[in-house]
Design a protein around this nucleic acid. Structure first.
Lengths: 100, 100
DNA sequence: TCCATATATTTAGATATCTCGATATTATGG
DNA sequence: CCATAATATCGAGATATCTAAATATATGGA
């Protein structure tokens, strides 16, 4: 739980939105048939929704992953990102403990 | 509740420390006799503890104030800062609502 | 009024973050 | 193997943040 890194990752409105969007898969287009049953959302869908360049979103997802907010799983050419609920809770606990 | 501004204010280890220190008045030297009964801690004490320049701390306190984490009250030449517990809670609620 | 003290504001150089285009990497299908 | 697609990484210019020194403002006391 690196609070510095986590807060820094959240210090951007689009990155916060992405974490929020990932709460509900239906915020994105339906998965391809061959991806049925896989958890998470691929980078392309996130990029489309965020409307920023591919490299920016890939970078964002890397930051969110390092911060522990999302888990990445590669399947073929796709990387699927999903929330890491346990780490997200741990972050809240840490912030609360430090500040509240 | 400007989440952007609040997270930005917390995106610095010393500023977070200051908010934490202010939880307990005894983290600072005792108040001057003429300040007995006044709430908060003067900028000089905070600066001493943080060990950064006067202008930096003054700037920090301004950011924390704009973000709603502290309340400033001037008494004579001194400005006393104390936590704004209600706003701090509101911040947590907002983050939780958005992310959790 | 003049001076000392506490804090705020201004200014600026150093460093970090943002965002993109270009390129590299990895995987798939023919 | 080649072409294509999805994602990651690199490099760079624009913008923001950090932090301090210098200066300004406000107050209190001699």
């Amino acid at each position: 739980m690196d609070l510095e890194r986590s807060i820094s990752a959240l210090n951007n409105p689009v990155r916060r939105k992405i974490v929020e969007w990932l709460k509900d898969r239906s915020n994105f287009p339906p998965a391809l048939p061959e991806h049925e049953g896989l958890e998470g959302v691929c980078v392309g869908y996130i990029q489309e929704k965020a409307n920023l360049s591919q490299s920016t979103i890939s970078n964002y997802m890397g930051l969110l992953k390092q911060a522990g907010f999302v888990i990445a799983e590669r399947h073929g050419q796709w990387t699927f990102y999903r929330r890491d609920e346990d780490n997200i809770k741990a972050f809240f606990d840490a912030v609360q403990k430090e500040l509240l």
